[in-house]
Simulated assay, not measured.
Amino acid sequence: MKFLPAGYKTKDLEKPVKNKWRWDWLNECDEKGDKWGNWLKKTDIPGVAFCECCAKTIKYGSSGKKGLKNHAKDSNHLKNKSVVPGLRQRADNPVVPSTVTTLETPWGSKVYIVGTAHFSKESQDDVTKTIEATQPDVVMVELCNSRLNILQLDEEKLLEEAQNINLEKIQLAIKQSGLGQGIMHLLFLSMSAHLTKQLGMAPGGEFRRAFRDAKKIAGCRLQLGDRPIQVTLRRALSSLSVWQKIRLAWYLLTSNDPISKEDVEKCKQKDLLEEMLKEMTGEFPGLSEVFVKERDSFLAHSLKHAAQPLPHPVVPGAHLPSVVVGVVGMGHVPGIMENWEKLQYNMKDIMTVPEEGYLPKVLRFGFRLSFLGIFTFACWRVYRWATPMIT
């Protein structure tokens, strides 16, 4: 059994029944003034509707609107309606910004994907409007556990953090991700810091807004939907040859061109970081595969998981379709749509970290050996300098 969207042409479907379905029935109100559309759904079965409050079907084929009206007055229905959360607050077709794409699962859950530009105040406002209009059960953001702290810090602190890459940050990145992945992470952080300085806005504002707005809705939970950054970075590095890694590092270190006012306006209309990655795919095609396509599939999988039906609060064993708002970079939206019906990647495969080759191990060992040599030489110089003073 599936639910039909409002306005769906039911003429052919309803041929076998005496009293045909009418969409204007959803605008009828009960004795308390609540619209039927807040709990009544049309199914893909002729002559059958569904009450979300009672988690049961209602046959109207023989009795028409009268049968639905009797159900609306039933004491059990009124009792259930008073305890089922959220049904009276949700519009059947909420008005959402143009940056929102609506998807539906086979079990009737709705997913509203807000495509954002990571450096845009307008995107943050779109997130608020969408959450307020849809009253979701789950808000999913394009983050992983390693980037969870972006939700806790205030805008000024994040701006300061992004603009200052110090030795402590370098050591922490290498400690968490290893030498190669840590350096690559820092190079991408450097690119983000450059954009932050130019735009005067820290990235991730739409995620912080989603976090704050989700907390205002009773029962709404936040879900992290992105693949762990360490896995993404290691898979990205493994997709490049040694020469490509050197060229990529050079590209990231030297791509600090000033951003014009026109570029700032463009940032409000597209995912700038994703666009910069697309520009690099000519020389580094593996990066597009790992950073964009694989993550599109992972995000689609996360959204479907977030949209699982919810246990009915009144009827044992019954379930209700859920409502989900996903907040992702707009560069991911087309890919999520392509992966919605069928995932293009196996989740186990794209969560696998390739084994490190022989050459990276040699380079890492050489780096550590060089660092140890420099440290030993520095200690020897300090000893030579301090010895005459002690004697």
Rank of each mutant, 00 (worst) to 15 (best):
M1N: 10
M1G: 06
T10G: 00
D12T: 13
L13Y: 00
N19V: 12
W21I: 03
W23A: 03
L26G: 01
C29S: 13
E31L: 10
K32V: 14
D34A: 10
W36G: 07
L40S: 00
K41E: 15
K41T: 06
K42Y: 10
I45Y: 06
P46H: 06
V48K: 07
C51D: 05
E52T: 13
K56G: 06
T57L: 07
G61S: 13
G64Y: 02
H71S: 01
A72P: 01
L78G: 10
V84C: 07
L87T: 10
R90T: 07
A91Y: 00
A91G: 06
T99E: 11
T101S: 13
T101C: 08
T105S: 04
G108D: 03
G108S: 01
V111N: 04
Y112S: 03
A117H: 07
K121I: 08
S123V: 04
K129E: 11
I131C: 09
A133N: 07
E161V: 15
A162R: 05
K169P: 01
K175P: 02
Q176M: 10
G178S: 08
I183F: 12
M184A: 15
L187C: 14
L189Y: 06
M191P: 00
H194R: 12
K197R: 14
Q198L: 09
Q198Y: 10
M201E: 07
A214P: 03
K215Q: 15
K216G: 05
L222H: 01
R227K: 14
V231N: 05
L233I: 11
L233A: 05
R235W: 04
R235H: 04
S241P: 03
S241T: 15
W243H: 15
L252P: 00
N256S: 09
N256T: 12
D263M: 11
E265H: 12
Q269E: 15
Q269P: 03
M276D: 10
K278L: 14
E283H: 14
G286T: 11
L287G: 00
L287C: 03
V290G: 00
F291M: 14
K293Y: 13
R295H: 04
S297K: 01
S297I: 08
A300S: 14
L303E: 09
Q308A: 15
H312C: 04
A318R: 09
L320T: 00
V328Y: 06
V328C: 08
G329I: 04
G331R: 01
G335S: 10
N339Q: 08
L343C: 07
N346E: 14
I350Y: 04
E356Q: 15
K361P: 05
F367G: 09
A386D: 05
T387L: 14
